Simulated scan of single mutants.
Amino acid sequence: MAASAAYWIVEATGDARFPWRIRIEQDGRILLAVRAGHAWPGAGMQVFCLREREHDPSEPLVPHERVPVAHLARLGRKLSVTLDRPRRKRCEFLKLEKRRKDGTPYEQIFFRTEAAVRGHRSGKRTELAANAVLDVVVDSGERYPWRFPGARVGRRRLPVGDYALAHEERPVAVVERKTRDNFLADLAELKGLQQQLAELSAYPHAALVLEAPYRDFGDPDRLGHWPAAHVQRVLAELPVLFPRVQLVFAGNRKLANLWTQRWFAAIAASLARPAPDSVREPLARYRASPADGGVDTRIRLAILNELPDGFAVASLRRLFPDLPPARLTRVMEQLRREGRLRREGHGRGARWWRGGVA
């Protein structure tokens, strides 16, 4: 069964210090609930929040807004939230661990919007501090392997791929390295290459790294007997057939080696810095719905495919009772400008017909 949408729900509490209760809910389960001083922080603001541990069902709460959630994701130690609406749609919850004077830990959660994140002095800082020592495994079949300065490098036969990042003795990231000529030779046995990439897809992180720029694969002088159109078609299909395998055109051997080392370092940093409870727990309970273009797309499809021709706005509102009428009107007006919908009449008696003006 497909997951239903999660919702961002804001309610007024009447509390002077924390006048807003913000929660993310899906299928009746609360993924995250906090008490905050603002319903939506302004530019340059980050709002301190208290994570709600228990909720008194008798507490009087006044509904403020209810918006579908388009996406939840982890960004380092932050929970990133994208709401399904045209404006004021991106925010995050940052969790910091602090210690009291007696050494006992406590948490601080800050609510920040996209405008605040962009304006913060840390806006250029990377999320993953890559300072861990890497455990790199080089396949024993590699004759002239890449170098990984500062890493612990071992050699053994890998089930698939040429290089692997090991974590607790298990490969967690695998790279298949190919020169331009290697890749062109594989085209003669394309099914074998696809099988190889299917095996790579089984790992948490996987990449096919080409020691050549993309332009080489469109240059007939560099492709031998292979037509450029066929080669480019294969390169376009591989990410579609194997979306879990990154396809990297590194340019040359040196840059391919450098990209792989830095990629391994970022993965190692992520593993060494697990997500805090305030991020891990909501994501563990969240069931992502397949991307379908969002609420505006669902409104468009309902208008074009579900409602009878000559429908009234009230019929559309019954299909989307949680949405503000202005949003429905905006989508209808957009379809009208595209020539796919026309209006007859005005006010409550107006009827909407598919197709442009006769």
Rank of each mutant, 00 (worst) to 15 (best):
53 R>G: 08
155 R>S: 15
327 R>A: 06
161 G>L: 08
162 D>C: 13
354 R>H: 08
172 V>Y: 01
257 N>W: 04
109 I>S: 03
46 Q>V: 00
107 E>F: 11
26 Q>V: 08
87 R>S: 10
53 R>A: 13
127 E>H: 09
248 V>L: 06
146 W>S: 03
155 R>I: 10
65 E>C: 15
274 P>W: 08
87 R>V: 09
254 K>P: 06
221 D>T: 11
201 S>V: 11
23 R>M: 08
88 R>L: 12
221 D>I: 03
239 P>V: 14
166 A>E: 10
289 S>F: 15
191 K>E: 12
227 P>A: 06
290 P>Y: 14
211 E>S: 07
227 P>N: 06
358 A>R: 14
286 Y>N: 04
105 P>V: 13
46 Q>K: 10
169 E>R: 13
26 Q>R: 12
162 D>P: 11
51 R>E: 11
164 A>N: 07
332 M>H: 10
22 I>C: 05
150 G>C: 05
316 L>H: 02
303 I>L: 13
72 L>I: 01
69 V>A: 08
19 P>G: 02
66 R>E: 09
335 L>M: 12
264 F>T: 01
21 R>F: 00
263 W>G: 00
83 L>P: 06
356 G>T: 06
204 P>L: 07
72 L>M: 03
218 G>M: 07
3 A>V: 07
268 A>Q: 00
131 N>K: 04
201 S>N: 11
196 Q>P: 02
25 E>V: 15
16 A>E: 08
209 V>T: 02
118 R>M: 06
250 A>P: 05
27 D>P: 05
343 R>S: 09
27 D>F: 13
231 V>Y: 03
253 R>V: 03
173 A>F: 01
127 E>R: 14
42 G>A: 11
144 Y>V: 10
283 L>P: 02
251 G>N: 07
171 P>C: 06
63 P>F: 15
198 A>M: 15
229 A>H: 09
297 T>E: 11
142 E>N: 14
261 Q>A: 07
197 L>E: 00
302 A>R: 07
174 V>G: 00
344 E>N: 10
132 A>L: 02
275 A>D: 04
53 R>P: 02
235 L>V: 06
239 P>Y: 14
60 P>W: 08
112 R>Q: 03
145 P>R: 06
238 L>Y: 07
192 G>F: 13
357 V>W: 12
349 G>V: 07
46 Q>H: 09
208 L>S: 01
230 H>S: 11
145 P>D: 01
275 A>Q: 12
255 L>S: 14
201 S>D: 12
91 C>V: 00
136 V>H: 05
252 N>L: 07
70 A>Q: 12
13 T>F: 04
309 D>Q: 05
134 L>C: 03
182 N>M: 10
321 P>L: 15
101 K>L: 13
211 E>P: 07
211 E>V: 04
74 R>E: 03
164 A>Y: 02
107 E>I: 02
